[in-house]
Design a protein around this nucleic acid. Sequence first.
DNA 1: CCAATAAATGATATCGATAACAACAATGCG
DNA 2: CGCATTGTTGTTATCGATATCATTTATTGG
Lengths: 336, 336
Amino acid sequence: MSDVAREAGVSPMTVSRAFKSDAYVNDETRKAILLAADRLGYVMDSMASGLSSRKTGFVAVTIPSINNANFADTVRGLTEGLQEKGLQVLLGYTNYNQEEEERLVRQLLTRRPEAIVVTGGTHTGKCRTMLENAGIPVIETWDIPADPIDSIVGFSNAEASAKIVGHLVATGRTKIAFLGGDASRDTRGFDRRRGFVREMESRGLDATRLVEAGPPPISMREGADALARLMSRWPDTEAVVCVSDLAAFGAMTECQRRGLAVPGTIAIAGFGAYEISDICVPPITSIDPHCYQIGLLAARRIIDLLSDGPDSGTKSQTLVEPSLLVRASTLSERSS
Amino acid sequence: MSDVAREAGVSPMTVSRAFKSDAYVNDETRKAILLAADRLGYVMDSMASGLSSRKTGFVAVTIPSINNANFADTVRGLTEGLQEKGLQVLLGYTNYNQEEEERLVRQLLTRRPEAIVVTGGTHTGKCRTMLENAGIPVIETWDIPADPIDSIVGFSNAEASAKIVGHLVATGRTKIAFLGGDASRDTRGFDRRRGFVREMESRGLDATRLVEAGPPPISMREGADALARLMSRWPDTEAVVCVSDLAAFGAMTECQRRGLAVPGTIAIAGFGAYEISDICVPPITSIDPHCYQIGLLAARRIIDLLSDGPDSGTKSQTLVEPSLLVRASTLSERSS
DNA sequence: CCAATAAATGATATCGATAACAACAATGCG
DNA sequence: CGCATTGTTGTTATCGATATCATTTATTGG
C-alpha cells in the first residue's frame, strides 16, 4: 500500500481511504490512486484491514452437506443477501456430524467472522458454549430449536410432515408409512418423522409403519431399498411419506421396477421441492421449505444485527411457512 | 493471547508456540497453556496469525455453480485433501459468468490465499493477469486449456463425448443428436459439443443435429423442452447425447410423456455420473469424470507446490481419464 | 471580511499474532 | 572439566492495514 502511496504521491492513509467508498477523499485524488494501484497490480489485503478495523467481512456458515441442493440454495440466498454489504460467506460442512461441527465452528471462529450461521438445533456442549461466547450474532436455520442460542430463521419440520399427512388422508389414504428419519444424526429428518407420528396418532391412525433408510445423506438408492423393505413388511401400504425428494424418487423407481402403480396402488410424497420431484413421471408431491428465502432472510437478519448494534439482546424468530406442492404422485383417488 | 499468557504465567510467544504443533515447547507448559486458554475461552486469531507469518491457511476455489453435484464433489475432494495440512477452502461461485469470475477472483485475492483453484480455461484478460501476478500456485480444473496459466488438473471434455459417440455407433445408431452446449457461457459444455461434432464427422456421420438448451446451468426441464424441439425437427433421431445427466433425465421424462421407448426407439446418454442416472428407469449411460478425484488431485498438487517451494516453474498437467458408464438407456440394439 | 464549518490529507499508535534472534539451562562427549 | 549441542523460554521488531487525532485548505453566511 505504501508503494501505491508513493506512486500516487500521497500518504498511505489516503490510499486506504480511497479504497473505502464512504470516506472523505477528493475525487481526483481517488482516481489517481486507483490508477496507480492498477499500474502496480495492487490488491488490498483484507486480512490486515480486518485486523486493524476489527471487521473481517466474513460471515461463517455451516451446513451438513455441500452436496445437497436444498442447503446449496440457502447458501446462495445468504451469499447474495450479504453481498451488498460486502460480506463474504466462509463455508464449511459438517457431514451431519456434531463432533465435526464442533471442530469446524472452532476453526471458523479463528477467522473472526462477524456473524455465524449454523444449521439445526442440536450441538455438542462445547460447540454451544463457543457459539454463545463468540460475541457475534448466531443464526440457527432450518429448524426451530427449543432453546435457541440467539436468532432463528427456520420452519417446523414436524408441521411440514403433518401437512402431508393431512393431504394424504384427504385423498382417502389411511395406511401410511414414513420412510427415513435417522435419530442419531439427522435431527431434521427425525423431526419430520416425529411430526408424522404425532399427526397420524392425533387422527387415530396407525403410526407404526416406519422404515429407516440409514444415516444421512439419504441417497436415492437407499430410498429404493427402503421401499423394498417397506413393501415386504407391510404390503398393503397405501402411501409413503419420504424424508426427502431424493428418497421419494428412489422409492418411486423401485415401484416402477416392481410394477406398483403410482399413485394408483401407492402414493408417494417427498420433501424439499428438488427439481426432480417436479419433472419425473409422475411428478412427486413435495414440501417447499423455501431454502433460498431462508438464506436471504438470515442474511437480512445479520445485516440488521450488525448495523443496529446492541439490539442483539432480543432473540428474534423468523418463521418461514413451508408450502405443500400437490402433484400427481398423490393426487388421484385410490384405484384398487 | 497475552491474557492467556498471564493466566499461564508465561510469555505470549510461548503461548503462540503452544498452539503450533511443531514448535519447541515443554509438554507440561503446553498443557498448562491449553488449559488456561480453555478456561478463558480463548480461540486463536488466524487473521492476525496470517498477517504475521504470511500464511493465511486459505486456498481460494471458484466454481461455476454451488448447486451442482459435480462441482460440489470436486470441492469435497479439495476440502478433504487440504484438511490434513490445515488449509481451509475459501469458496466462491461465478454463475458461469466471466465478469462475475473476475470480480470474485479479485475479492478472493484480497484474502491472500496460498493457492487458487479455478474451474475452466477461459477468463477475462484482467482476471488472467491477476491470476498470473498473484504470486501463488494457480490450478485450473475440469478442463485442459490450450494456454494454461500454471498447473492443470482436468480431462478432455471433447474426448469424453467422442467416447460416447463411439459407443452409440457400436450399438448400431448413426442418426445421433447432441443436446445442450452453450457457446457463450458454458465452455465445458461447448467443448463436449465440439468433441461430438468432430467425432461424428471423423466417422463420416451427419453432425448437424444440434439442439441448444439455453445457458447453463441446464435444468431437467430445459432438457425435456430441448428434446421436444429435437424430435419435432428430426423425428427419426436414434440417439441423443446430452450435455449433462440432468438434461438427459429431463429428456428421458419427455420421452416417457410422448411414449417414445428408451432405448428401443431412442437411446439417451448423459454426462456427470449423477446418482439419478444410475437409479432412474432405465438407468442412463453416462460419463464419470471422477469429480472427487479431481479435487483430491488438485489438493495434492497444491500441497506439493507449497512445500517444494519454487518448483512451481514447471506447468504440470495432471490428467484424469473419464470413464464411460454403459447403462440400459443405450444398451440394447435398436428395436424398430 | 472574518469566524465557523466542512473537506481533504497526514502523523502516529495500534490491531494480534509470529519471525528472528538472544539467553540460559540441561545434556552429552571427548 | 570445558565446550558444543539441544531444549525451552523471552524480547523486540514487524506483518499491512485503519482509528484517531491533528492539520491544512476551501467555503459559507452574517
